[in-house]
């Protein structure tokens, strides 16, 4: 006997987590990436810390706000969100994430107040806890994906490293865009360093995705099928456009910008990087949901 096919079944749910979740991960990368890099640049270049003391909380609050908004919108019972604080279940990465992000929001508000009142010491006091919270806010989604046993391609800790690299891409791209919008007020040294961070993290993230696609040992048939969906299936346009936009174009343009000191290329690279990051996160999120589980 050869071949088997389903001839009778009920309609199965396909995409459970859609574009709202992709947007959640994308916006969170910008918020946490700009915080992590902002702290680094404040420490390294105290003579130009005003730029980062201003934009770290502004970018953080805007994009963590988007993250929280889409998270709540995606709930089927959005007005029960508070239960996550009153009835927490701490084996769940969703719970841990909600608590960590809430604490991170408090740090961002303190950072904003610090900039608004000019009280630098206030931000200095919350820098270390803020850095830790931003780090865990970045990676908790990888924990959720790791706990999503059904979707075998989302593997911890590879997903965690990928998310940290996404935060570095998003943070550096966000600062390069703000710098360009303000007529390149940053020191050239800082702009170049932001470019190198964008270049390096794009390269490493691309290596992880391409490695997964071509060289990784597929630990299950499900993972193998997901990779086929990514490369050739219904999300392939998102995936390949994401690869080009998030990695290839930014690396090329930032390379030109830093090599020839033509920094307008750096902010074009940054815009592409942010668009590409959403595309690739969306493809990665949707692909495992296109296969039947039962």
């Amino acid at each position: 006997m050869v071949g088997a096919e389903v001839t009778f079944d009920v309609a199965l749910p396909k995409v459970v987590w859609g574009w709202l979740v992709s947007t959640n991960m994308w916006a969170k990368s910008i918020a946490t990436g700009s915080f992590l890099l902002g702290i680094y640049f404040i420490k390294k270049y105290p003579e130009q810390d005003n730029f980062f003391r201003k934009w770290l909380p502004i970018l953080g609050i805007i994009f963590i706000g988007i993250t929280l908004l889409v998270t709540v919108l995606d709930l089927h019972h959005m007005f029960r969100f508070w239960k996550i604080f009153l009835h927490p279940h701490f084996t769940s990465a969703v719970t841990l994430g909600a608590w960590v992000v809430s604490a991170f929001v408090i740090v961002l508000l303190v950072a904003f107040w610090s900039w608004a009142t000019g009280n630098k010491k206030l931000l200095d006091r919350v820098m270390i806890p803020g850095f830790i919270l931003a780090f865990f806010s970045t990676i908790y989604t990888a924990g959720i994906m790791g706990e999503a046993t059904a979707r075998e391609v989302w593997v911890f800790p590879a997903e965690m490293i990928s998310m940290l690299l996404s935060a570095m891409i998003a943070g550096s791209a966000a600062y390069l865009i703000v710098d360009a919008l303000y007529g390149q007020i940053l020191k050239e040294e800082i702009r170049r360093e932001l470019g190198y961070i964008l270049f390096g993290s794009s390269g490493l993230a691309a290596a992880m995705f391409i490695g997964e696609l071509f060289f990784a040992k597929m630990h299950s048939e499900f993972s193998y099928e997901v990779i086929k969906v990514l490369a050739f299936g219904e999300v392939a346009p998102f995936f390949w456009l994401g690869i080009v936009f998030a990695f290839i174009i930014p690396m090329t343009l930032v390379g030109i910008a830093n090599e020839y000191r033509r920094y307008r290329y750096a902010w074009i690279a940054s815009v592409f990087a942010l668009i590409g990051l959403w595309l690739i996160k969306h493809a990665w999120l949707i692909a495992p949901q296109t296969l039947p589980l039962s």
Binding site: L12, V16, D74, H76, H77, R80, H87, A150, L293
Partner: peptide, 20 residues
């Protein structure tokens, strides 16, 4: 009454046994 409708359980269940 406790469920917040995040659908995490649907993402986690490898048997497609949960629905909203």
């Amino acid at each position: 009454e406790r469920c917040i409708g995040c659908a995490s359980c649907m993402m986690a269940c490898p048997y497609n046994a949960i629905y909203i």
